[in-house]
């Protein structure tokens, strides 16, 4: 079970997973994120500042969440990626496709822009 907190700032939903997103935690992340996104969020930021490990299972959950947001007419971006997981986002192409921002504020403004 993943520890996931969230915050609503204006019309943006900020998801904050913690520690590890791998095959053992990805499913619970997906389930919780789906409930929050389905509540009507159009702008979603996933803040990875407290995540120190992400595997392929985690990346795929990020992707399915992004597709869900897009299907609802919204957009998703990433923020606060730590050095531990930055390489995974870079090499996989997630950083360039979804955008990777230093802070949540920058991420929200990119979604507003």
């Amino acid at each position: 079970m993943i520890e996931l907190t969230h915050e609503v700032r204006g019309d943006a939903l900020i998801l904050r997973p913690k520690k590890r997103i791998d095959s053992s935690t990805a499913k619970s992340f997906e389930e919780q994120a789906n409930v929050l996104v389905d509540a009507g969020a159009k702008k979603v930021v996933i803040d990875f500042s407290e995540v120190d490990y992400i595997s392929s299972a985690g990346l795929r959950v990020v992707l399915t969440t992004a597709k869900r947001v897009k299907a609802a007419g919204g957009a998703l971006t990433l923020s606060g990626v730590t050095s531990n997981v930055k390489e995974v986002f870079d090499v996989s192409g997630f950083a360039s496709i979804f955008g990777m921002h230093d802070s949540v504020e920058q991420a929200i403004s990119s979604l507003n822009g």
Binding site: I54, L59, R60, E87, V88, V91
Partner: peptide, 17 residues
């Protein structure tokens, strides 16, 4: 080591996509 980990996870993700 971190690069090899990133390559493996990325390759797995992209092949799954």
């Amino acid at each position: 080591g971190r690069l090899l980990f990133a390559l493996g996870e990325s390759m797995h993700t992209i092949l799954s996509i």
